[in-house]
């Protein structure tokens, strides 16, 4: 495959990825209610952004989604780190293959299957023991943690696979308790993976519409559920404004976290070099 062809495809592909996003941003400043006709006389305007901030339904849904996403990301990081640690560091143990299967299957499982099955679990549980009582924040969060923890596990596991366990072994030999070793050595090593796992889980939960639709009760509507029912009826310009705001926030976050992680990585390498030099 020659270089010019590859690079042309790369440019075209990136264009394909970004043109839809760009068109949403551009049309979010359009005055016309017709989303695709540019009203040059009265544009650009910020009125759709103002309309968005006046829309109590969207704001309420956004708040619920943020709370669910934060709870999901935190829960998924705790469980995913434990699972990643077990799979990467504990060698062979009984049930390892099964744990590994349970943490990779959700990565590709069609969402309708996950959503249906976990809802039927909640219904059966409620019938049998009266918990969870009704559906809403709790059931959405539990369902989201379950599919997000698989992603965190993979991220943590591959980060741990990049380091051999000599540092941890050394600390254990010197008499450190396993818990101390985890807090003082393993955790700092995998911190970048934990941060990106948290952000990944937050995004996946914030973005999910299918699973939420199954496990949300009539009282709880997350932002994607509100957006989905709105855009099924056709395009609406305030959704363009919402999308543009989200693109802006995400772009800032991704750039900042990438820079932060790169700096940390460089610092770690520097320290390693210094330690090696000092050790002679």
């Amino acid at each position: 495959m020659n270089g010019r062809f590859r690079n042309t495809m790369l440019v075209l592909g990136l264009g394909f990825l970004y043109i839809p996003i760009l068109s949403m941003v551009v049309f979010s400043f359009n005055n016309s209610r017709l989303v695709t006709v540019w009203d040059a006389a009265n544009s650009p305007t910020l009125k759709w952004y103002a309309a968005l901030l006046d829309n109590a339904q969207i704001l309420g849904a956004a708040r619920l989604s943020i709370e669910i996403a934060a709870a999901t990301a935190t829960g998924a990081v705790v469980l995913g780190t434990l699972a990643g640690l077990a799979l990467a560091r504990f060698g062979p143990f009984r049930g390892r293959a099964f744990l590994s299967a349970m943490t990779t299957a959700p990565l590709v499982m069609p969402e309708v299957i996950t959503g249906l099955s976990i809802l039927l679990l909640f219904v059966a549980l409620e019938q049998a023991i009266g918990w969870p009582d009704g559906r809403g924040f709790l059931t959405i969060t539990l369902a989201h943690i379950t599919f997000c923890l698989a992603y965190v596990t993979v991220v943590v596991q591959s980060r741990l696979a990049g380091f051999d366990d000599s540092l941890e072994e050394a600390a254990l030999d010197l008499g450190a308790r396993p818990a101390t070793v985890f807090w003082r050595i393993t955790l700092p090593l995998i911190l970048p993976a934990i941060v990106s796992g948290w952000l990944l889980a937050f995004t996946l939960s914030w973005d999910d519409v299918v699973i939420s639709q199954f496990v949300a009760g009539p009282s709880a509507s997350t932002l994607p559920m509100v957006v989905f029912s709105k855009v099924r009826l056709g395009v609406s310009p305030d959704i363009n404004a919402l999308a543009s705001l989200m693109v802006l926030i995400v772009a800032v976050c991704v750039v900042c976290s990438t820079l932060w992680m790169r700096r940390r990585e460089r610092q770690r390498q520097r320290e390693e070099q210094m330690a090696r030099a000092a050790g002679g």
């Binding site: 996003i21 949403m24 695709t36 006709v37 855009v231 995400v250």
Partner: peptide, 27 residues
């Protein structure tokens, strides 16, 4: 990072963007 960036923005909204592009009176 450019490949991953769209993945971090809402999947639903990015699919919705295509409605505006592909409509009969679309872009």
């Amino acid at each position: 990072m450019l490949i991953m960036l769209p993945f971090w923005t809402s999947f639903l909204l990015r699919v919705y963007a295509w409605v505006g592009l592909l409509k009969t009176d679309g872009v």
